[in-house]
């Protein structure tokens, strides 16, 4: 079997296992107030990191490109309490515009 097939099957198997394990951890673990607090904060940390990495990196390099402009537009839209699709489409339009100009 080729490396690509191993990659597809291995990644898929572990991805599902991780998802399933999360739903299977004993519930008593979650009555701990500290664990509850941490669990509330985890998506904030990971989603913020995803925003940062997907905006300012290209593989392992830090870059400043059209995506930063798109993100600025998204922040302005969010500050102005714009609905979600406007945030995303505004960001995409600004980014694409800068890309085509550059």
């Amino acid at each position: 079997m080729s490396a690509l097939w191993w990659g597809v099957i291995g990644t898929s198997a572990i991805a599902f296992l991780l998802k399933f394990v999360g739903h299977s951890v004993p519930e008593k673990y979650l009555t701990n107030p500290r664990a509850l607090r941490i669990n509330t904060l985890i998506p904030i940390a990971l989603l913020s990191a995803l925003v940062a990495v997907q905006t300012f990196s290209d593989k392992s390099r830090l870059v400043l490109d059209q995506r930063a402009v798109g993100m600025s537009v998204a922040i302005i839209a969010l500050v102005l309490k714009a609905p979600f699709p406007i945030v995303v489409l505004g960001s995409a339009a600004a980014s694409a515009l800068v890309w085509h100009l550059g």
């Binding site: 998506p43 798109g70 922040i75 960001s91 694409a96």
Partner: peptide, 17 residues
């Protein structure tokens, strides 16, 4: 990137957080 999709995904994450 020509379609702005590379910015749309982090913008979606930003909108979620």
């Amino acid at each position: 990137a020509a379609w702005g999709l590379d910015a749309a995904v982090p913008a979606a994450f930003l909108g979620l957080v």
